[in-house]
């Protein structure tokens, strides 16, 4: 007798969704190998030209820039998120804990567009930062932050922060506090105890957080589109331009497929890096 009579029923919606997204992916995959027929929405015959086109400096440049922005964002997010996650896990003060949780995690529920829009208000030429600096008499002319890599990375860090905080908190909360106590009793001050014990033990969480942040940023669209304004190109914005401005679906598909492959490659590398670290955590 079937022990789980409703299993099929429960799994059905997820299966449908999975089939739909697999079909979409398959469509994109086959588009990537079809020729672009200018002036037509239908692709031509099978070809590898789309992938060769990616090697042109113009597009290769966007790949390099995307990887650079993603790495920068992931690392800055790590530096900002670690203290937050540490405080969140370690504080016994309930008010502080709630405050940290709200500041760190609520942005997740605001949506990328809303969060990015708030950054336009902060970073714009007549925005918060520039008007404050001007008011203080520190600058005469506004500092250009919109449409720059700096602006895009700043907003992406904010967008990525909640995910990183959640992943680091999970890793840190699994570290037994007795390790720090042991280090302390053996003569390590708070900083040494952190650097020699807590930090190394949290490395699986750090690697997982950085690789997730990387993948998260790689697929971000609204932020680079709105803050970069076409001046800071990332793969996602390029796909949009090619697909919906030039209607070159095959090339956009090839770009997407390559981006996806790159993301998988990065995640696989992170998994390899985590392997020896995970054994550490097991005790």
């Amino acid at each position: 007798m079937n022990k789980r009579p409703f299993l099929a029923l429960f799994v059905a919606p997820a299966t449908l969704a999975a089939i739909a997204s697999a079909a979409a992916l398959a469509a994109i995959l086959q588009y990537a190998f079809r020729a672009y027929v200018p002036g037509s929405l239908n692709p031509g015959g099978l070809t590898l030209d789309n992938f060769f086109a990616l090697l042109r400096p113009l597009y290769a440049q966007v790949f390099i820039q995307t990887v650079w922005i993603c790495l920068l964002t992931a690392l800055i997010t790590l530096v900002v998120a670690y203290p937050l996650a540490y405080a969140l896990v370690r504080t016994r003060n309930v008010t502080l804990k709630s405050f940290l949780l709200i500041t760190a995690v609520t942005p997740l529920f605001l949506g990328e567009v809303v969060r990015t829009y708030s950054w336009i208000i902060v970073l714009g030429n007549t925005g918060f930062i520039n008007s404050v600096l001007k008011g203080l008499g520190l600058i005469d002319r506004p500092i250009q932050m919109m449409f720059t890599t700096f602006g895009v990375v700043t907003a992406l860090v904010h967008v990525t922060l909640p995910v990183m905080v959640i992943m680091l908190s999970a890793a840190l909360s699994h570290i037994d506090r007795d390790y720090e106590k042991a280090a302390t009793s053996l003569g390590a001050g708070p900083v040494k105890a952190f650097l020699t014990v807590t930090l190394p033990l949290s490395m699986p969480g750090v690697v997982a957080g950085v690789s997730t942040a990387f993948a998260w940023t790689f697929s971000a669209f609204a932020t680079p589109q709105m803050i970069g304004g076409g001046k800071v190109s990332m793969i996602s914005t390029l796909v949009y331009q090619l697909g919906f401005a030039s209607f070159n679906f095959p090339f956009a598909a090839a770009l997407s497929v390559t981006g996806l492959a790159l993301t998988f490659a990065v995640l696989a590398m992170a998994k390899q890096a985590i392997k020896p670290l995970e054994k550490i955590g097991a005790h």
Partner: peptide, 20 residues
């Protein structure tokens, strides 16, 4: 005296050996 300056040896219930 700060705890790291007390020169006291502690053996914990779960040993707390540094796994790394």
């Amino acid at each position: 005296t700060a705890p790291y300056d007390r020169e006291i040896g502690v053996v914990f219930q779960n040993y707390a050996l540094f796994p790394h």
